[in-house]
Amino acid sequence: MAYDKFNILTTSAVPLPIENVDTDQIIPARFLKATERKGFGDNLFRDWRYNNDHSEKKDFVLNNPIYSGRILVGGKNFGSGSSREHAAWAVYDYGFRCVVSSFFADIFRNNCLNIGVLPVQVSPEYLEEIFRAIEANPNALLEVNLPEQTITIKATGSQESFDINPYKKANMTNGFDDIDYLLNIKEQIREFAGNRPL
């Protein structure tokens, strides 16, 4: 599925300074029963966000009106656990285009890149700096510049660069996905398959 191109994103951010946020928290299994990719944002962080009677949990950050923006900033080891792409869909569908953390679980990172959410891995110190900037001012702006591979706290100008595979970067900036690429080399794949022992 194609997605919007990603270039430079300047926005405020939502802080979630919890470590090991797993995919069961991002979207609990009981919300995986859909057969289309629709409406997952409503159940993002479902059990942290709502009480059993569906009323909002006032102390959860997504329910706090002072925080908003298109970047989610999470603690270390974000997205561990299951391979459910639904977790990345929920993040995207809620309106986030970028997740910042000091460490990501592999499959979640891959899933994000495949659907147009940019995972930005920063140093633990810089992550703390971001949390402090948001604490000081909930509207603090972050700028994520994909072509330059930098992230900047606008108020202070403090900047860090981040890594991304050049191929994936080109995909993100152009809004391409891997399937288009693979379909183009189908003949090469067919030839390879013909020589397989299994």
């Binding site: 391979s83 792409e85 891959n110 495949n114 659907i115 191929y167 399937i179 693979l182």
Partner: peptide
């Protein structure tokens, strides 16, 4: 190894996925 749904689609379509060697 486990894959996401976009990759399930890739395998159905082309029997391949894109992976960086760990």
């Amino acid at each position: 190894f486990g894959i996401g749904t976009s990759e399930v689609e890739m395998v159905l379509a082309t029997q391949c996925i894109m992976q960086t060697k760990p």
